[in-house]
Design a binder for these strands. Sequence first.
DNA 1: ACCTAAATGCAACATCATTGCAAAAATACC
DNA 2: GGTATTTTTGCAATGATGTTGCATTTAGGT
Lengths: 138, 138
Amino acid sequence: MKYSELKNTLKKHSLRITDCRMDVLELFTKTDHALSFKALESELDVYDRVTLYRTLHSFIEKGVLHRIPDDSGFASYGICHETCTPQEHSHDHVHFKCDECGHIECLSDHHVPKVVIPGYVVNEANLIVSGLCNSCNA
Amino acid sequence: MKYSELKNTLKKHSLRITDCRMDVLELFTKTDHALSFKALESELDVYDRVTLYRTLHSFIEKGVLHRIPDDSGFASYGICHETCTPQEHSHDHVHFKCDECGHIECLSDHHVPKVVIPGYVVNEANLIVSGLCNSCNA
DNA sequence: ACCTAAATGCAACATCATTGCAAAAATACC
DNA sequence: GGTATTTTTGCAATGATGTTGCATTTAGGT
């Protein structure tokens, strides 16, 4: 992705243009799977851990990334669709975690079923599937 | 639940009978919702944190409890059905987390839909729903 | 170019979880 | 019941993950 496009993405989400944000955004756009903090840190070791955490937080707050919970407690982060805004995230897609390589993918063509529970209010639903991914299954 | 029943449950899962395991098991059987580690610790503060962690691990390994992932990274633990064995856990039920009181319930009458992804092997699927529970919604 | 508000780096801190090891307890064996 | 063997426990130390305060630097508006 071109420098100007990355810059526009940041601007569109009212985020200041900084080296760290550009590099983080670029890494996410060129990676086809979600990234853990660890992966991010080892890839962009120029920046302080704290800065990377804060970058992730601002990206999530502004709707650039979404946080993907993980059964092991480690969160990963994936790029949001265009439909996401700071006010309204729509992440009803299923997440797949490979037990072999650890990669987490967003399965945008699979959707989380609507769950209705009488007497309850449902705000969010996360479906996390684990197993072997395409490459590791080969 | 009677002392003898608790003891039998432990024996059935080939776990030694210890004070800690009896107390942890009793707490889980008399509680209708899942328990976080924190709740466990504050309830059973006689025991060392490490011992409680190890108790949880052995219970999970032997199929007495199952771990419930949480989008915040804190896991909770719930009792397994009778159908669970050390070899085969079956937790295709949906978990509900209340944003207000924090309680996590196992919705045994809701089941996680089977997810099929071409070229992938699916081992596990976790569906976590959050919102307001029955009591907090009232 | 200047000013203001935001972002960064560093250090310290907070929280959650695990490991090594000696002492204590539980089961197996006689 | 008494003893040997294995497991479990408690304590201390360590690791892993994430956050906060604060001084310095940087970005963007004027």
